[in-house]
Amino acid sequence: MQMPQPNDNPRSSGGIAARSAPGTAELREEDDTVESGDRSQPTPASGVTRAPEVGAGAEPETAEAVHPTKVDVRSLSLWYGDTQALFDVNLQIPDKDVTALIGPSGCGKSTFLRCINRMNDLIPSVTTQGQLLLDEADIYGPDVDVVQLRSRVGMVFQKPNPFPKSIYENVAYAPRIHGVAQKGAEMDDLVETSLRKAGLWQEVSDRLSLPGTSLSGGQQQRLCIARAIAVNPDVILMDEPASALDPVATATIEELIDELQSNYTIIIVTHNMQQAARVARYTAFFHLGEVIEYDRTDTIFTTPREKRTEDYITGRFG
């Protein structure tokens, strides 16, 4: 399918970016287009979950560039069979920024993340309702090709899962199947660039033919990141990417995320509050399948609006 490129998107133009994105008023009006039905629960905090009112805040940081919405989630509900796992989620995730998803275990963070590249399609029992717009095109639309979608929305998993193939092959695989690069010099360049962006080139340039599984855990995770960015996606989803790593490897990954955010929209699930505080500009707090609060990370961590958010952050539950 043809998805509008960022350039086609009027909202990504600088003028709009300067307005009150990611939570623009006109978008909220459109929310009612969703066939919500009686299954979607009324969200008590739905007013809060709409968007961090970045522009509205009076804090001095708001002077920095405000990014347009990249992923616009409208009244998304999801069921595993008869059990509802996501309740009317509304989020506007800004472009070229890091957004963290936090919340107690089992609250639906991974489930939500997997909606964004439709990995949940692989689970037969899943049904979704609502809209999830990527650059204003509904990824659950009828003519969406998931293969195309996943080349634009890459994913990094909790446990490093490089293919049991060579390091080179790990990175070259996705470009090859999507026809992004030709075999040979072009592919070699792409592999090198991707590994450089993932901060792994120095360590592996002399052993590209070794199996990816022969690397250390942190290196494997960076290889997975290189694999994800090799097709130059718009969005990178990361599900607790550092939870299986030691503090040093975690720090490396966090630095990497920091570097990548200038080119990619990154959505990261984490259980580590400090990590969210360090890497993410925005944070969404999930609880029992609902977005309780979504705001600038510093606001969430210093002056949360919701009691539950505060309780979670201060470690009173979860």
């Binding site: 590249n117 996943r150 080349s151 998993f157 695989y173 199947i177 097709v231």
Partner: peptide, 21 residues
């Protein structure tokens, strides 16, 4: 392991590609 399948699906491989590659 399913993680291999997920990794392949995650980079946009079709089901046939996941299986055969």
């Amino acid at each position: 392991p399913d993680s291999i399948r997920e990794g392949a699906f995650g980079v946009g491989a079709s089901r046939l590609q996941v299986v055969s590659h």
